[in-house]
Computed example of a mutant assay.
Amino acid sequence: MKKTQVEISWDWPAPFVYETKVEPQHIDDFQHTNNVVYLTWMAKAAWEHSKALGLDFDRYAALNRGMVVRRHELEYLAASRQGDPVLIGTWITANDGRLRLRRRFQMVNGETGETLLRGLTDFVCINVKTGRATRMPAEFVTTYSLTAHVENDI
């Protein structure tokens, strides 16, 4: 018998969704997913979305430009436990067309629909060879266009 897919109440429409599962190595002494794992999942979801948009590391190298993390913010709302399916939704909610980009995240238990975490990551564009902040190429401005509107995001 096939499990019924739970209805997910996403914070904004049409997220890019990365799916994962809580594995034994993700569990801490409190018997729930360790905080660092959520951050890792945010990074993985962002990178998978970037690759789906056509901006993988080979493309970054060819452009000599890349987006790197400047700041993370995570709000833990509920615990996940071994075996739980986790859906990570991400949206691009700000792109100043020059240097900065913001992604927002929502993690949801795929069986219950409960929101586990909300977070955001601010990125800056760098020159890959020097590591210095630099203006985004036009390809980043258009490819990393907004996928959700959040009032007062950068």
Rank of each mutant, 00 (worst) to 15 (best):
H32D: 01
T33F: 05
N34G: 05
V36E: 13
Y38I: 04
W41M: 04
M42Q: 13
K44Y: 07
A46P: 08
E48R: 12
H49I: 01
H49P: 02
H49Q: 13
G54R: 06
L55H: 06
L55E: 07
F57C: 00
D58F: 10
Y60N: 11
A62R: 14
L63M: 15
N64K: 05
N64I: 01
G66E: 12
G66D: 14
M67D: 04
R71P: 00
E73F: 08
L77E: 13
A78V: 05
R81S: 06
D84F: 09
L87W: 09
L87T: 04
L87Q: 14
G89W: 02
G89D: 06
T93G: 03
D96K: 08
G97H: 04
R100L: 03
R102T: 05
Q106D: 10
G110A: 13
E111W: 08
L116E: 11
L120M: 07
L120T: 01
T121F: 04
C125F: 00
I126W: 07
V128K: 10
K129D: 15
T130A: 05
G131T: 01
R132I: 01
T134S: 11
R135L: 06
M136C: 11
P137H: 06
A148I: 12
H149E: 10
D153C: 11
D153K: 06
